[in-house]
Computed example of a mutant assay.
Amino acid sequence: MLEESDDPVVKTVQPSLKTGRKWKVTEAVDEAKECLKMKEVIGQTQTDRRGLGSTTAKWWSKTEGKEKRYMIIDEIRNKEDSTRVQKAVQQPQQGQWTNWDTAIQRSLTWNDIWHMAPLRISFLIRSVYDLLPSNANLVRWGKKDDPTCPLCQGRQTTEHVLSSCKVALSQGLYTWRHNRVLQELASVISTAKGEIHPSSTSSTVFTTEGGVKKWHGGSIPLNTHRKGLLDGCDDWVVSADLPEWERHPDVIRKSALRPDTVIHSASTQLTVPYESRMEEAHAFKEGKYLNLTKELKKDGYEAKVMPVEIGARGFVGSSAYGLLSKLSIGGNKRTKALRLLAETAENSSRWIWSRRNESLLHKE
C-alpha cells in the first residue's frame, strides 16, 4: 500500500509483514484492488431503500494517495466482515443473530467495554451467541443430563428463560421488564412535548457578497425543518399503562384493549420479545389494534398505531427508531434514547437470567 505514496523513497519500500497461515497481506491487498476496479466497471448500484443517486461513489481510477489506501482498507474490512457473516449463517445456534432483520446493529466502543462490568459483558456476548449455561446447553456440552426447566418443566434454553417460561410469566417477571422499558419510553416521548413543533416558521434570508445565505434571528428556514407526526400540536398529552402515569382518554378506556402509550392521536404499543420474533410481534400488535383504530376513525379521530419492539437482549427494533423520528426526536437525543431503552431491557433480562432456577422470585 506504500506504493501509492507521493514520496518516491517511501514508494519503493516493500516491507515484509508477518501474518498467520490463513491470511496474507499482499494477497488481501491485491484482491481488494481487483475488487475495486471491478466495481468501477460494474458502476454504481443501490443495495438499500435509498433512492438512486442519493449516494456518491468513489472510483479507483479517480482517486490517489491516501484515498486509495483508505479504499483498500475499507474493502478488506468489508470482505472480512462478509466472510464472518457467511460463516455465522451456517451455524444454527451461534449464528441466529443473522436473522434479526428488524434489529438495529448495536455498536460497542472500547470506551463502552472498558466501563462495563465483567458480568454484563459476559451476559451480553454469550446471550447473543446463545452460549449462556442454560440446562439445554449444559446437556449439549456434556455437563448435565436433564435439560428441563426447574420452574415449568419445559426445555430450558436461553429463549425459554428470557421470554417463554410460563412460571416466570405468571409471576410477572416479563411484565416487570416490559414496564421498566415502557417507563423509559414514555419518559422519552414526554420530553418531546417540550420541543417546538412549528406548523410554519418565518425567517429572513440574507445573502452575503460571497453568496452565503444566513438566516436572521436563528430561526430555521421552512425547507430545512423535518416534518414530524406532532408538528403544529402543542397541547398533546402522553398517557401510559402505568400506575403513576396519566390515564388513557375515555375514548380508549371504553374498549377492552389497553395500549401501552397513547399520544394525543397516536397509540404506541411496546413489546419486549426475543430478537428472533420481532417481526412476528410487530405484525401481531398491528392486527390486535386494527379494529380499535377503525372505530376511532369512525368517531372522527385521527388514530395511528405504532408497535415498538425492544429485544430482550437489548437490541432495539427499527420500529423504535421510526417512532422517535416521527416525533421529531433525532440526532443525539434519539441515539441516547435508543441506548437507554436497550440498556434497560438488557439489565432487566440479566436480572431474570440470574434467577432462572429460583422457584419464588421477588422483585424490588
Rank of each mutant, 00 (worst) to 15 (best):
G51L: 07
G53D: 08
T45H: 09
L138F: 12
R126F: 09
L222D: 11
V89K: 15
P259M: 10
L341W: 11
G330A: 07
Y321Q: 13
W100I: 14
E302I: 12
V161L: 08
I73L: 12
I196G: 06
T148W: 08
S107Q: 10
A342R: 00
D112H: 15
V305L: 13
P147H: 04
I73K: 00
G172F: 07
T148N: 04
R350F: 08
P92E: 06
W97C: 05
G228S: 14
L340Y: 04
S16N: 13
G51Y: 07
G43C: 02
E280S: 13
T344Y: 05
W351F: 09
T63A: 06
G20E: 01
E358H: 12
R253Y: 05
V139Y: 03
S328C: 05
Y70C: 05
L257D: 06
L327P: 08
Q171S: 05
V212F: 14
T158S: 13
A57K: 06
P259G: 02
N99W: 02
F206G: 06
S5K: 01
K304D: 09
V237M: 12
E246H: 12
W97H: 03
W176T: 14
V161D: 01
E343S: 12
T98C: 10
A303I: 12
S203I: 11
G217T: 09
W100S: 11
Q86I: 06
S319W: 06
R180H: 10
R69Q: 04
D241P: 00
Y289I: 12
W60Y: 05
V212E: 15
D7C: 08
S127Y: 05
D81C: 13
G300S: 02
G65S: 07
R120D: 14
R350D: 02
D81F: 09
A337V: 11
A337T: 05
G228P: 15
S328L: 07
I329L: 07
S255P: 00
G300W: 00
A117R: 12
V305I: 10
S200T: 14
L2H: 08
G53R: 00
T19A: 06
E80N: 01
R226V: 11
K297F: 08
S318N: 08
E295N: 08
Q96N: 03
F284G: 05
